[in-house]
Design a protein around this nucleic acid. Structure first.
Lengths: 252, 252
DNA sequence: CGACTTCTTGAGGATATTCAAGAATAGTGG
DNA sequence: CCACTATTCTTGAATATCCTCAAGAAGTCG
């Protein structure tokens, strides 16, 4: 088994054509001749799992099943058991995200993964991935980059948790959601308030209060699940530390 | 440049003899015949850096210098700039820790590294490491494990930041320090109270108060830099969420 | 030994939590 | 399609916790 990963020094070029249907399309970096169409047939067979909202992909202490997963549709939350029964949310994952990077060399999962909405998940056995990484050095670069980004995301999360103000954390969370739905002005909140609270180190009451305060000011507009930020500049000010009275009436 | 990393599925055996003087001794996993002495001469030339307390190994936005570092002696803190001038401590690193894993595929550092005490740091160029990883599949396994552990450590840190009570966080921090000085009942606090506070998302005043409260109860004994936990069981209870009055006199 | 920084501790005030009850939503079965 | 139940969400008031500001103590370094 020649499963190897390239240790990369530079950044990854992303001007390369990718096959659309491939679960590894973020990694499968065969250079196509300029002007040609991307290959239509996937270079790897695609094994998909369907998950309904509330179902587990895996649980804490499950044995790792020698596969990585890629979220094609839907939303997943990664969690750990906190003390006192509560659960700590590690991360919310959306379409395109990789699942299982944190358990690469572990025997058992130290996190659980639950579907928040109906999901479509592509599974890639380690063996398949590593053979790709062997064939294509650029893919290996991209994979290394993926691991680095995961660490960076955790550091960003930690920074959010240290923001003293609750309003600050909630504002940062909303902006993060928007950013992940890149380019769009609209993002979704498929998770419960309790989940958001566990993610931000707050209580669901406080999250609710902060959201209400932003709504009262007209800076946040929420539908059933989706939201937009009409006052994005203001929300960014709050995220940067501007004070936000929670139980106050609108003044300006 | 054939720099590759083995993607590993199992756990890493650690019954293997290692050469003592090698900066890569945690990775250099040549199997020695049972009963033979570990090789005395390092398999890689060793370039060491000496750092005095307060000196930087690298700063935020420095270009990554194509090297990894291994802390042989001393303590280092990894930090990022927070908003409003404060700095967020990412991690405290002690002897044996690897530095720079988070910047593997980055052009510029997104964290700074400062010596807390006088340090001795071994530097390993990527090229040297990767040639080792090519030669020894077991080393590549170990390296993959290292990356996985880094992610796990960040998740643990995030869990600590979500602990609601200040006393809880401080207690967890003390226990973590003890654990890292594995086996010993004594650990050190080479960092300032402000650093601890930035690491835990508190203020230095609160950290001080919590430490005083633990000392008053006789559960914590502090010298200049080192400390022990005579009431370790009690401290563990606090870390798990047991209440701890900060400004209270000792009752029991 | 003296100047500097860091640490400790106090009092007051701001902020998030707790507890609780009512409103909105989702899910179920008729 | 609608009613009914269960869950989640919002909001209020009171409390506890942590932060701010500040001054004195202890430690560090030349």
């Amino acid at each position: 088994m020649a499963n190897r990963l390239r240790l990369v020094t530079g950044s990854v070029a992303d001007h390369i054509r990718r096959c659309q249907a491939c679960p590894l399309n973020a990694l499968c970096l065969d250079e196509a001749p300029p002007g040609s169409l991307p290959p239509q047939q996937p270079c790897l067979e695609q094994r998909c799992v369907q998950l309904h909202g509330g179902e587990h992909l895996f649980r804490v202490s499950d044995t790792v099943d020698q596969q990585l997963h890629i979220l094609r549709k839907g939303d997943i939350k990664l969690y750990q058991h906190g003390r006192e029964g509560g659960q700590h949310i590690i991360e919310f994952l959306g379409p395109g995200a990789w699942i299982g990077l944190e358990s690469l060399n572990e025997e058992r999962r130290h996190a659980g993964a639950v579907a928040l909405t109906d999901c479509e998940i592509a599974s890639v056995p380690y063996a398949m991935l590593t053979s790709l990484l062997d064939r294509q050095p650029r893919s290996a670069e991209a994979f290394g980059h993926l691991l680095s980004c995961t660490i960076a995301r955790h550091q960003q999360h930690a920074a959010m948790l240290r923001s003293t103000s609750a309003a600050q954390r909630v504002a940062q969370f909303l902006l993060q959601r928007l950013e992940q739905a890149h380019g769009y002005a609209k993002a979704t909140l498929p998770m419960s308030r309790q989940d958001i609270a566990d993610y931000l180190g707050l209580t669901s009451s406080t999250v609710s209060r902060c959201l209400s305060a932003l709504r009262r000011r007209g800076w946040l507009s929420m539908g059933q699940r989706a939201f937009t930020l009409p006052g994005r500049a203001d929300v960014e000010r709050v995220a940067a530390g501007a004070p936000l009275a929670l139980d106050d009436a609108v003044t300006s």
